[in-house]
Simulated assay, not measured.
Amino acid sequence: MVTVLTPPGPVAYPIIASTMKRRDVKVVFEGNAEVKLNAIPLLNEVNYVLVSRMLVITPGLGKKIAVWKKGSANHILLDLVLKLYNHEAEVVFTDDPAEVYKLYKEGKADSAVVTTAVTRDGLYFEDLLSAKGFYLPGICGAEGLNEDFETAYLEGIDLFKEDPEGTSEYVADNLPIYRPSTFIESIFKNSEYSLRKLDKPYVFRKA
């Protein structure tokens, strides 16, 4: 039996999917657990990279950039990019992730930090950071080594590949917040999900 602590975001989707078939996986959204999932900037250290190429700045680095929630991983990564590129921009925050792209489309910002469920037209954070010599192995990961977690997460990815629609509906029904199953299906299709065990734990360093 393995307990996995996760926020209800994209990193959670495969581990939730695994509970369709497995009874030895417990997914919790608060408290503590052997394995913790989160965006890489929010983990103490990273043992597994789980989701890559999921976050873009669309259409590019503007002068007024919309981003979800002050202090979120999206904001931390944007702040890092702005510092590394010595790029001055006004940052526009919203507490509603669905509002970020809307602010851009309505002209209240000239660029936005969004997931690939919204668009793949833009600059990927891994590429932006790599160009400045900053290594970011992915967007989301896990802290805490556990073999049961490894097999469960990979099984969840396989379930998405076998039946994207049905698996997305199951995950949507088992989240503590509302997310349309179409959003879940889209983010899985347009991002890179895997389980990459790192030889040495990765520690995110802010610039």
Rank of each mutant, 00 (worst) to 15 (best):
Ile15Asp: 01
Met20Cys: 00
Met20Phe: 00
Arg22Gly: 03
Arg23Ala: 00
Asp24Leu: 05
Lys26His: 08
Lys26Met: 15
Val27Arg: 00
Val27Asn: 02
Val27Met: 02
Val28Ala: 06
Val28Asp: 07
Phe29Arg: 03
Glu30Arg: 09
Gly31Lys: 12
Asn32Glu: 13
Glu34His: 02
Glu34Asp: 05
Lys36Phe: 11
Leu37Asp: 03
Ala39Arg: 10
Ala39Cys: 12
Ile40Trp: 12
Ile40Ala: 06
Asn44Met: 05
Asn44His: 12
Asn44Leu: 13
Val46Arg: 07
Val46Cys: 11
Asn47Lys: 06
Leu50Trp: 06
Leu50Cys: 06
Leu50Lys: 08
Ser52Thr: 10
Ser52Tyr: 03
Leu55Arg: 14
Leu55Thr: 08
Val56Met: 01
Val56Thr: 03
Ile57Ala: 00
Gly60Arg: 11
Lys64Glu: 10
Ile65Gln: 03
Ala66Thr: 09
Val67Ala: 00
Lys70Thr: 09
Gly71Ser: 04
His75Ser: 12
Ile76Gly: 15
Leu78Trp: 04
Asp79Phe: 05
Leu80Val: 05
Leu80Pro: 08
Val81Glu: 09
Val81Asn: 06
Val81Gln: 12
Val81Gly: 13
Tyr85Phe: 07
Asn86Leu: 01
His87Arg: 07
His87Pro: 10
His87Asn: 07
His87Glu: 13
Glu88Ala: 05
Glu88Ser: 13
Ala89Arg: 03
Glu90Trp: 02
Glu90Pro: 02
Val91Arg: 06
Thr94Tyr: 01
Asp95Lys: 12
Asp95Asn: 11
Asp96Phe: 15
Ala98Asp: 13
Ala98Tyr: 13
Glu99Phe: 14
Val100Asp: 05
Tyr101Ile: 14
Lys102Arg: 09
Leu103Met: 15
Tyr104Leu: 05
Lys105Tyr: 11
Glu106Leu: 11
Gly107Trp: 14
Lys108Glu: 13
Lys108Gly: 14
Lys108Phe: 15
Ala109Leu: 06
Asp110Met: 05
Asp110Gln: 04
Ser111Ala: 09
Val113Ala: 02
Thr115Asn: 04
Ala117Met: 09
Val118Phe: 08
Val118Leu: 03
Arg120Leu: 06
Phe125Cys: 01
Glu126Cys: 04
Asp127Phe: 12
Asp127Tyr: 06
Leu128Val: 09
Ala131Leu: 02
Lys132Pro: 15
Gly133Tyr: 11
Leu136Gly: 05
Leu136Ile: 10
Pro137Cys: 09
Pro137Asn: 08
Gly138Ser: 03
Gly138Glu: 00
Cys140His: 09
Gly141Pro: 15
Ala142Phe: 08
Gly144His: 04
Leu145Ser: 05
Asn146Gln: 05
Glu147Tyr: 12
Asp148Thr: 10
Phe149Pro: 00
Phe149Lys: 07
Thr151Asp: 09
Ala152Trp: 03
Tyr153Thr: 02
Leu154Gly: 01
Gly156Leu: 01
